[in-house]
Amino acid sequence: MTELSMTVNGKTVTGKAEGRTLLVTFLREELKLTGTHVGCDTSQCGACQVHVNGQPVKSCTMFAAEAEGADVRTIEGMANADGSLSVIQQAFQDHHGLQCGFCTPGMVMTTAALLKENPKPTEAEVREYLEGNICRCTGYHNIVKSIMAASGQDVSAIAAE
């Protein structure tokens, strides 16, 4: 076991990890930040997505030791400072972008990464960016709609409620 130190959601944290400890395991079991989910553990589903130094990353496919000294953001760090939902989170609620909610942490983190890179994406660009995020419930339609709405675009023409 070695001691790791990194910044998670703006706070400096330390914890113990083995070489093989995955970042998602470190977040969930050592830091007790269980908002980051494990859907597949095989790099497919994106439920475990977090940001490492501003980049979207599948935390089930990165060793915790690789995040030593890094700036990590998880779903727990996405709400506004006063605890209210961020624009992205609110859009998911408003447009029924989740059902069971299992994929949602990853969807929100992916959305944040997309909108940073491309603040006004087209529907096709949104769908392409979601390549690595799987949802078992929604059929994606309302997720795409939520993301378009979060980017400030008019979504009244995108399919039915």
Binding site: V57, L114, N133
Partner: peptide, 9 residues
């Protein structure tokens, strides 16, 4: 290649 998160690593 892959998806955006795979491309970050």
């Amino acid at each position: 290649i892959g998806d955006p998160a795979v491309r970050s690593r």
